[in-house]
């Protein structure tokens, strides 16, 4: 178990990009965005296709982020301009992206064997692979968290947060809530695509089905983080989400070690999220009974 600590933490850090993305839509914007199920493999597809052509890994990740962000814009367009309900708009993008991803890759599974990735670069600097993943994970998480913290402290960032809390209020203050939603969706899906790009590089391959369940993984990380580490401030929430993503990986590693078949992982995660989402309701019922 002890030798799993570093790799599991690294996994959590890489996946925390996704958790932060889901946090932005689900919590900040109050928008249940299914697009992530498609933008996660999209990020992987774009990054892998860049790496296969021997582009710089950093460039590959940036290209992935841009592609993911554009996917978010499409969902935002469907919702704000065409008035399609948010959940359905995300589902439409997600399904469409399945074909887009196959188009980008040409086939359902592409290997990165022998290609340079963000991790092999760090490895070539003299670290072993596992530590290399850890270092990349830490660096990516730090950069992204600092960026998010800065961005949501700006005027635009404050307006995006206000849009999530009270669109009526921020419109009355002269802000176009549709534009703010687009900003948020762009960022969220760009982050998700970065997660996809990193995970594909770590796994060493792209698979068209790798996006299945990302929304639930993201939600699980956000909720675990909030429950365990608090939501006192925006800064606190960001740290909580990253830690939540790491804890989630440890939970998964533990149940697998205990002998749960990997095929049951998604069922396990869904049940976990369902329980966590139901907790406030159960709690209030329990308190009502106690009071009554």
């Amino acid at each position: 178990m002890i030798d799993l600590i570093i790799p599991t933490t690294s996994q959590g850090l890489l996946w925390s990009m996704l958790a932060l993305g889901v946090y932005i839509t689900f919590r900040v914007l109050d928008f249940a965005d299914m697009t992530v199920e498609g933008s996660f493999p999209l990020g992987a597809a774009v990054a892998v296709s860049c790496l296969v052509k021997d582009y710089n890994p950093l460039l590959a990740i940036l290209a992935a982020a841009l592609a993911g962000g554009l996917a978010g814009i499409v969902t935002g367009f469907l919702h704000t301009k065409l008035r399609i309900p948010s959940l359905l708009a995300g589902i439409l993008s997600m399904i469409a992206l399945y074909s887009v991803n196959l188009r980008i890759m040409g086939k359902a599974n592409v290997s990165l064997l022998g290609k340079e990735t963000a991790f092999t670069i760090v490895e070539s600097m003299g670290l072993d692979y596992a530590n290399g993943v850890f270092v990349v994970g830490i660096a990516a998480t730090l950069i992204v968290c600092l960026f998010i913290y800065w961005f949501f402290g700006t005027e635009i960032g404050a307006a995006i947060r206000a849009t999530g809390f009270n669109p009526q209020m921020i419109r009355a203050q002269g802000v176009d809530t549709n534009v703010m939603l687009l900003f948020g969706l762009f960022m969220s899906n760009a982050l998700t695509a970065i997660a996809g790009a990193l995970i594909a590089q770590n796994n060493g391959f792209f698979d068209v089905g790798m996006g299945v369940g990302t929304i639930v993984i993201g939600l699980a990380s956000v909720i675990i983080g909030e429950v365990l580490f608090g939501t006192r401030s925006f800064k606190n929430s960001l740290v909580s989400v990253v830690l939540g993503s790491i804890v989630y990986r440890f939970v998964i590693a533990t149940v697998l070690q205990m002998g749960m078949p990997p095929n049951d992982l998604k069922l396990f995660t869904s049940v976990l999220v369902a329980i966590a989402l139901a907790l406030p309701m159960v709690k209030s019922k329990f308190q009502a009974r106690k009071a009554g």
């Binding site: 005027e155 947060r161 206000a162 999530g164 809390f165 203050q173």
Partner: peptide, 27 residues
């Protein structure tokens, strides 16, 4: 009229810029 999850000073900062396009300077 206010964003409940944001601080008093954040709400006021938004209001102090009412009608102006938000930019990237610190709120």
């Amino acid at each position: 009229g206010t964003a409940a999850g944001m601080m008093i000073e954040e709400n006021l900062a938004i209001a102090s810029r009412r009608g102006k396009t938000p930019g990237l300077s610190w709120a």
